[in-house]
Each structure stands twice: as structure tokens, then as C-alpha cells.
């Protein structure tokens, strides 16, 4: 037995002695699928986000936020005019996620401080919905703040986005949607409805301690059309004229084909 081995052994013992909790907390996470393909039988998808937290302590919480590709939206308020409901007063919102789901180990208000949730845009109440055309920057009491030109009404518009997207299952917020299985292991279900938009998604996993996020891990998810759906979609957008001609030709073929079949009988 040499001196070298003795030193090595001593080193091993030393590292093993260090308590795990003292390490910087870290998150490992993965999705059961990193791509979702929309084919002709697509009727939504359910993915599992699973992972492990290094250095999980009692009272720590995990929050998973999944965001779909950003879209610009125009929200209009219906108003009765001459007895008929007409869309009026459009407000344009920019970069609204097409899909937004939050899952957490406990209700968000118990997990994070208001400012922390607001800063990271966690929860339907804190999701950033900006309408630049109606906003202006003003300096009040020496602080630059964003002021909405339509005042309190903007809250109704924001509320409408959250409410309608929720009804379509495109937005969701589930407290207790993240299960801590054992020690630092956790899992959460990500449910994509059939109308989920196509594009790049991100899933952010936050570790909250004492009301503040102490660790973050982001993973990507790609939702795209595949197979015949993709071919037809690309054809329609990239060769629009040819697509139109093919659509007409197919209709003629079917119309005349059917006439020929039925007249023979």
C-alpha cells in the first residue's frame, strides 16, 4: 500500500463528508418527447416533464412554466349598435404566447413573492400582455412607469385573453400540478390541446425558496406539422397558385367522376 493510495482514500472520504444541501441547488429536467408532430389524427398530446432537483430542502417549491410561440393578437370589444353586436375598439397585443401553462407544487401565491412572480411572468395574473400602441412611458415621482392610454379598460382586455384562452385549454394554471415523487424527483404533465399552435415552445422549471427563484432550467419543445398535413400546409403557403389550381382540378375530377359512376347505374 503506497502513500498515494492513502491520500486518495482520504480525499474520497473528505468529499463524501460534505453534506449535499450545501451545494448550489440545481435542476435537471427532460420531457418525454422533445418534438410533437401534428398529423392527420392529431387530437392533442400529453407529455410528461420529469426531473430532479439537487439540494431540495423542506419548504422548497417547483414551478413549471410552458410557453408556446409568441403571436400578435387583436382583441375587440363587442358593442350593441342598432340592436346588433359589432366588434369595436380593437387593441393590439404583441408577443402573446400561443400556449401558456403553469404547474406548481402549491398555489402560486403561497410559493413566490408578488414581485418575483411578476418579474418572471409566472401565473395568469402575472403573464406579460403588452399592448404597445395604447401604452406610453411617463416619469412619475422620478420613476419611469408604463401608462395605459385606455386606463382601467386594459385590464378587461387582458382578462378576456386569459379567459378565452383558458376555455380553449391553451392557457392553464394548475397548483399541485407538479408532483414531488421522492427526494428531489418531480414530474408534471404538459397537456397540449388539438388547437395548440405550431412552433418552438420552452419549458422553464423554477426552484423557489423563501419566495424567490433560486434555480432555473429551460428545455425546448418543438411542435410541428408532419406527414401529409405538413406537405399540404407548405404547398398552400409556398405555391399558393398551384395549390389553387390543384384544388379546382380535384373538385372537377370528383364531380365528373361521381356523375360518371352514378349515371352508369
Amino acid at each position: 500500500m503506497s502513500v498515494l493510495t492513502a491520500i486518495l482514500m482520504a480525499l474520497t472520504i473528505q468529499t463524501a463528508d460534505v453534506p449535499i444541501a450545501e451545494e448550489a441547488p440545481g435542476i435537471l429536467a427532460a420531457l418525454t418527447q422533445e418534438t410533437v408532430e401534428i398529423r392527420s389524427n392529431f387530437a392533442g398530446a400529453e407529455l410528461i416533464l420529469y426531473g430532479a432537483v439537487r439540494g431540495l430542502e423542506d419548504g422548497d417549491d417547483i414551478v413549471v412554466v410552458v410557453r408556446g410561440p409568441a403571436q400578435d393578437l387583436r382583441v375587440m370589444r363587442k358593442a350593441r349598435t342598432f340592436g346588433i353586436w359589432i366588434n369595436r375598439a380593437p387593441v393590439q397585443f404583441e408577443d402573446v404566447p400561443g400556449y401558456y401553462a403553469v404547474a406548481s407544487t402549491r398555489p402560486l401565491t403561497d410559493i413566490g413573492a408578488f414581485t418575483a412572480l411578476r418579474r418572471s411572468g409566472i401565473g395568469l395574473d402575472h403573464l406579460r400582455l403588452s399592448a404597445p400602441e395604447t401604452e406610453s412611458q411617463e416619469v412619475r415621482f422620478g420613476v419611469e412607469v408604463t401608462v395605459s392610454e385606455i386606463g382601467e379598460e386594459i385590464a378587461d382586455y387582458r382578462g378576456a385573453i386569459a379567459r378565452m384562452r383558458r376555455n380553449e385549454s391553451l392557457f392553464s394554471e394548475t397548483s399541485e400540478g407538479v408532483d414531488i415523487i421522492d427526494g428531489g424527483l418531480f414530474r408534471a404533465v404538459v397537456a397540449l390541446p388539438p388547437s395548440t399552435p405550431v412552433g418552438e415552445y420552452t419549458a422553464d422549471v423554477y426552484l423557489f425558496r423563501n419566495g424567490q427563484p433560486v434555480a432555473l432550467r429551460s428545455i425546448g419543445l418543438d411542435v410541428h406539422k408532419a406527414g401529409l398535413e405538413r406537405i399540404i400546409y407548405n404547398f398552400a403557403y409556398e405555391h399558393s397558385m398551384l395549390y389553387g389550381l390543384v384544388a379546382v382540378a380535384l373538385a372537377l375530377l370528383f364531380g365528373w367522376g361521381a356523375a360518371a359512376i352514378f349515371s352508369r347505374r
Binding site: 403571436q71 400578435d72 393578437l73 387583436r74 382583441v75 375587440m76 370589444r77 363587442k78 366588434n87 380593437p90 393590439q92 378587461d156 382586455y157 378576456a160 385573453i161 379567459r163 378565452m164 384562452r165
Partner: peptide, 8 residues
Amino acid sequence: DLFAILPV
């Protein structure tokens, strides 16, 4: 619903 969401 008194609001409508339309694509831009």
C-alpha cells in the same frame, strides 16, 4: 363573451 380575439 363580450370580447373577440382575432389574429392580426
